[in-house]
Design a protein around this nucleic acid. Structure first.
Lengths: 177, 177
DNA sequence: AAATATACGGAGGCTGCCTCCGCTTACGCA
DNA sequence: TGCGTAAGCGGAGGCAGCCTCCGTATATTT
């Protein structure tokens, strides 16, 4: 890849991330191109469809999430699981405007991003397995349950991390007495 | 209102409901007008903005929801609450494509639809109050918690009622052992 | 320095949004 | 029954964003 091409690619990715965060996935691609200082043609060559651009932005974010997962150093499996779910909530919120796309990727094996999810799934799987072994969580709980509820909560109070945490805890502890 | 105007209004509402259900809130308004057998001008006169049309469709759905609420006849307050939440899930799912709008209405007091929500809130409030009195649910639970989590779940598995029910039950019973 | 492969960018065709205004029609009144 | 008019109708047209296409510019190679 030529140097100028790489430079434009990076700038487009940065601007797209900002634009999607501000205006959601419907942000004008022409504006993104303009912000990156290139013509629309260049944008479309690098990212033939809006979807491609969204996916490229998300790919970046997955890295960060996976890094967080590796850094989890909590001994108590129950707590570790909670920490991990909370970290996911923060990441999803930081990816504002792309929550819906993320949820699709997580729930739909057809998604081109599903592969990226696998890495995160295996983290969840491990944490969940350990938590089950120690009897910290109910044995019928699945990793898919967790992924879905986390996205649901992130989406339902996108801009309010305090409520997110509260709902997560309600989910973990239960509502019925 | 003239008879023809009323007729067109109704048809537009019907077609809009169908279109939004199929294609989401981004459905083409020109197509909706065509489907209703009127020109776009007529559509825009009745519903000056897309938002107005969406809100009008939702208003209809709220009726149905309120009716369901009135029909709840379960003695055990804990069960009654669960039934009500489940009924809400079904209604929200039936309003496919408008879930996001609904969530906004519920969470944002500024929304023109917020008034419609009040009726439902009072039902929730009553059921929740009774459940708390009998000690069926934790006392710090709020009606807003319920509204938000129900929308989150409905959104996160929009097309899978079975998973919705499962997640609701996980939420009610809790995950930690 | 020349050759060439690669990338750039914006004009242009298309679709959908929304407005505006001349045409049509339902309805009340004689 | 027939007429006048307020109310309603509908689509042409201007605008914005999407995406394609291809002539021009430039990085890289020899």
């Amino acid at each position: 890849m030529r140097a100028d091409a790489r430079r434009n690619y990076e700038r487009l990715l940065t601007e797209a991330g900002a634009a999607f965060g501000e205006k959601g996935t419907e942000a004008s691609l022409e504006d993104i191109a303009k912000a990156a200082g290139v013509g629309v043609g260049t944008l479309y060559r690098h990212f033939p469809t809006r979807q491609d651009l969204i996916l490229a932005v998300l790919r970046d974010r997955f890295e960060a999430m996976a890094a967080t997962a590796r850094d989890l150093t909590c001994d108590d499996p129950g707590r570790a699981l909670r920490e991990w779910l909370l970290a996911q909530l923060h990441h999803i919120t930081a990816t504002r405007g792309l929550t819906a796309e993320l949820a699709v990727a997580v729930n739909n094996p057809e998604s081109p991003l599903h592969g990226q999810c696998e890495a995160l799934f295996s983290v969840s799987h491990d944490l969940l397995g350990r938590a089950k072994e120690t009897g910290a969580v109910r044995p019928d709980l699945t990793q898919a349950d967790l992924a879905t509820i986390v996205h649901g909560i992130a989406w339902a109070c996108e801009s309010d991390p305090v409520r997110q945490e509260r709902l997560l805890d309600l989910f973990l502890e239960g509502v019925l007495v």
